[in-house]
Amino acid sequence: MKIAFTTKGTDWDSPIDPRFGRTDYILMYDEDKDVLTAIDNTDISEVAHGAGPRTAQKLFEQKPDVLITGNGPGGNAARALQQGNIKIVTGAGTMTAKQAYDAYKDGKLKSRK
């Protein structure tokens, strides 16, 4: 399974970015291969309108099964993510990516349909 995190950095110890559209990085963890990759999204600060759909598209290209984030995407981004059948998991806004992954595995985070 491929799991995506919205983060402020590029490794497991990076704090989760509670924002979806304007997250600095998307961290991708491929469980089967045990590989962690970081996708730079910092250019989103230049985008005045539609950060949500834009980041959703970037995420969509990675084809994750699950997204772990903080507050959860807004309406526009949620509509785009729905299109990609990505499961949205929220409530990790104060954790590191590693803590968020563990919490998700322990079933401690909320899923949004």
């Binding site: 985008v47 309108h49 539609g50 949500g52 759909p53 959703a56 598209q57 969509f60 785009a80 299109q83």
Partner: peptide, 10 residues
């Protein structure tokens, strides 16, 4: 689109 109002998803 400068407003990201049109996006291609798959």
């Amino acid at each position: 689109c400068k407003f990201n109002a049109v996006i291609k998803l798959g």
